[in-house]
């Protein structure tokens, strides 16, 4: 599981690559924590994310809470149908700007 972070003046983009199971979530947690302090817009690119467990969702929610506190914006991009359905079940569709 990899998180590739790219930043420009406008936005920070985090590309999630691999399968975000519980173990992976544990592994990327420090990286994700760092992202809490993002400037401008945070784009979470899920094009290469094949799977997400509740631990992964938890990280997403953590970032979303941080953004809400600081007034930042989070965009979730390119999610697969499977992950979209998980987002739907959990009500995350209403919490995130999905593109």
């Amino acid at each position: 599981m990899e998180v590739i972070v790219t930043k420009d003046s406008q936005q920070t983009t985090a590309s999630l690559v691999g399968s975000l199971d519980t173990l992976a979530a544990q592994q990327i947690a420090p990286q994700m924590n760092e992202l809490k302090d993002f400037e401008g817009t945070l784009v979470l690119d899920c094009e290469k994310l094949s799977y997400i467990s509740s631990s992964g969702l938890r990280l997403f929610l953590m970032l979303r809470k941080a953004a809400a506190e600081r007034g930042g914006k989070i965009i979730v991009r390119n999610i697969s149908n499977e992950i979209r359905s998980v987002f739907m079940m959990t009500g995350f569709l209403n919490l995130f700007d999905i593109q």
């Binding site: 509740s54 969702l57 938890r58 929610l61 953590m62 979303r64 809470k65 809400a68 998980v86 079940m89 959990t90 009500g91 209403n94 919490l95």
Partner: peptide, 24 residues
Amino acid sequence: KADTTLSVEDRPIGGLGIYLIREL
């Protein structure tokens, strides 16, 4: 059952696992 309609501020971080099992 986890409340999926809560706002960002009110959503607890945990509690989704069992909810997901039931849903899936």
